[in-house]
Design a protein around this nucleic acid. Structure first.
Length: 577
RNA sequence: CGGGGCGUAGCGCAGUCUGGUAGCGCACACGGUUCGGGACCGUGGAGUCGGAGGUUCAAAUCCUCUCGCCCCGACCA
């Protein structure tokens, strides 16, 4: 007796294609936004019942979110297979030795999760898989005949991020599609690099994202060339510079730009008193001269001693650009400024300076005002090159309104989410890990590598950031958790339920993924939740319409609904979805 | 790691200044009415007030330490 009851529950709760009934699925929607969510995608993922947070940077993906990720992953797999990449699966737990051989065991700091196994052996959790992929290549690739190869996986990565943030955008554990190419020649690498760039374009387009491919800083990945794929969104952490005229686009970390030209003043060289006026803005207001006529002098401490960095008053130093010139550095503290330059910060300048000077290119032109290296004095009429010399580099951060170095067009700056990147690694990993092959002449050569990453959760979050309204998410069709949400408004009306079940079955038979809101809820609740979840189309079954044999098909994005005969509904949906 | 904010019921919050039996809204359970854009009435369940120590007759409230989460910055292979 007891058993038959249990079976009954099992059978009524299950249908052939899995659970697609709202009443049986875990979709914990929230009326209010949890207070610690800032990014829109984060708020909506929580409210619409897609994710829950376990701890800082650790997220649980609930059924809806997991369906979205699986759809994204299917697209990733299709496009990877299309360029000849082979799917593999690498361990997440790595022995330290492999990372020690490439030097990254020591290069990387607290961001790597490290542990010991029971025998005391050093291990780490994989942040990325260059080492392990190269280890494999070193073992299995012998001859130029084995090349090229491209291997990929969709695998968990772990990074002990200093600051996880913005929901699933920056987490400590995340899934990544990472692929690695192995070639005999630079040309081969170039081919694989372009194949990946093409595949990435198709992937992001299919996922319904607006995005840019930009030049990026290869950073510690090594290698000379890399690009990032960036989805514009205010929730992003990066900024890119874009030229509307020639299409130049680069991460602001390395974007070159020409600041607005300034009129050349004919000031004589003279000291002027500027009591208590320290910052560019203060002196600018005091002397009634615009900030672009000032030289901003910043003292930094590099590994090789102090460096005075100079940019125009209306510009900011970009730390990464400066780091390319002088290596890693930090801003000097106030006491250090006084100690090294003999004058307090606020009145320092390049004239008569004995320490290393690095100046922004644009300062070569013009006549400026700078600190006089004397308390409460500035110098007007400073002529760079004549009055001081320096190492000249582009070290300013690109600003919107600056000119493009390539074509002179106007640059704009956009905030973006990094959704993918591609790197030419060269032999950075193959040499230390001894991934060599024998060429036609029998010579031992290092394999030439590239690595390519995409974060599926970031695609999902970026899609929400770019597609939402006050009512909730509006998924692109390709990555929505379901194609259709079926809304039988009155579950107590047997006619409604009967049509709903019929349509539900018919849609499933037609390969349409459908979520049926079979909850005994008021119509208003179902509408609100449907809009929140963001499934692209809603099929609404209301009693009145059904009396005339009609159902409504509503577009989540436009909120426009068409009425159609029950008999034609599935056909209509197939055409739209 | 530096700066700021916050931890009180599943969620959103009040109560903390000025110590005196832990509250409100939503959600949840039950009953009734309602039923095309987050219904209404009634009843009810649910909280070690983040944790530890201290002060006090008495601590959510005061003191010390600690843990966690969020935001800004630094960092980001």
């Amino acid at each position: 007796m007891l058993y038959s009851k249990i079976y009954l529950i099992l059978f009524t709760g299950t249908d052939s294609g899995g659970l697609m009934r709202f009443s049986r699925l875990l979709i914990p929607t929230l009326r209010e936004t949890p207070s610690d969510a800032e990014a829109i995608s984060h708020q909506l993922m929580l409210r619409a019942g897609y994710v829950r947070q376990l701890a800082a940077g650790l997220y649980i993906y609930l059924p809806l979110a997991w369906r979205v990720l699986n759809r994204i992953n299917s697209i990733l797999k299709e496009e990877m297979e299309a360029i000849g990449a082979q799917e593999v699966s690498m361990p997440v737990l790595h022995p330290a030795e492999v990372w020690q051989q490439t030097g990254r065991w020591d290069d990387i700091g607290d961001e790597m999760f490290r542990l010991k196994d029971r025998t005391g052996r050093d291990m780490c959790l994989g942040m990325t898989h260059e080492e392990i992929m190269t280890w494999l290549a070193a073992r299995e690739i012998r001859s130029y005949r084995d090349l090229p190869q491209t291997w990929y996986q969709i695998q968990t990565k772990l990074r002990d991020e200093a600051r996880p943030k913005s929901g699933v955008l920056r987490t400590r554990e995340f899934i990544m599609k990472d692929s690695y190419s192995f070639d005999a020649t630079e040309e081969g690498l170039e081919t694989n690099y372009q194949l990946h760039a093409g595949a990435y374009h198709r992937i992001f387009k299919r996922c319904g994202l607006r995005f840019y491919q930009v030049e990026s800083d290869p950073g510690m990945m090594g290698g000379a060339v890399s690009h990032e794929f960036m989805a514009p969104s205010p929730a992003g952490e990066d900024e890119i510079a874009l030229c509307s005229k020639c299409g130049y686009s680069a991460n602001v970390e390395l974007a070159l730009s020409v600041p607005k030209e300034i009129k050349k003043e004919e000031w004589p060289f003279e000291e002027i008193q500027t009591p208590e006026k320290r910052t560019v803005n203060e002196v600018s207001n005091f002397l009634k001269v615009a900030p672009e006529y000032f030289i901003k002098s910043i003292l930094v401490i590099s590994d090789n001693g102090p460096v005075l960095a100079l940019v125009r008053g209306d510009q900011d130093i970009h730390e990464k650009k400066l780091a390319k010139v002088i290596g890693s550095h930090r801003p000097a503290q106030k006491a250090e400024v006084k100690e090294i330059l003999g004058v307090e910060a606020g009145f320092i300048g390049p004239v008569g300076q004995k320490i290393r000077l690095v100046a922004d290119e644009c300062l070569k032109q013009g006549v400026y005002i700078s600190g006089a290296n004397k308390p409460h004095y500035h110098i007007r009429g400073v002529r760079p090159i004549t009055d001081f010399n320096a190492e000249w580099h582009d070290i300013h951060a690109a600003n919107s309104g600056d000119s493009c170095v390539k074509c002179g067009g106007e640059l704009s700056i956009e905030r973006v989410i990094e959704i993918g990147n591609i790197f030419k690694l060269g032999t950075k990993y193959s040499v230390p890990l001894r991934a060599f092959y024998l060429d036609e002449k029998g010579l031992e050569m290092p394999v030439i590598m590239g690595s390519y990453g995409i974060g599926p959760a970031r695609i999902a979050a970026a899609a929400i950031e770019q597609n939402n309204d006050k009512d909730g998410i509006i998924w692109p069709k390709s990555i929505a958790p379901f194609d259709i949400e079926l809304l039988p408004l009155n579950m107590k009306d047997t006619g409604t339920v009967e049509v709903a079940e019929r349509l539900y079955k018919e849609m499933k038979e037609n390969g349409i993924e459908v979520l049926m809101d079979d909850r005994d809820e008021r119509a208003g609740v179902k509408f609100k939740d449907a809009d929140l979840l963001g499934i692209p189309f809603q099929v609404i079954l209301g009693e009145k319409n059904l009396k005339e044999d009609l159902v409504e098909i509503k577009d989540r994005k436009t909120k426009l609904a068409i009425k159609t005969n029950v008999a034609d509904a599935v056909k209509e949906i197939r055409e739209m979805a």
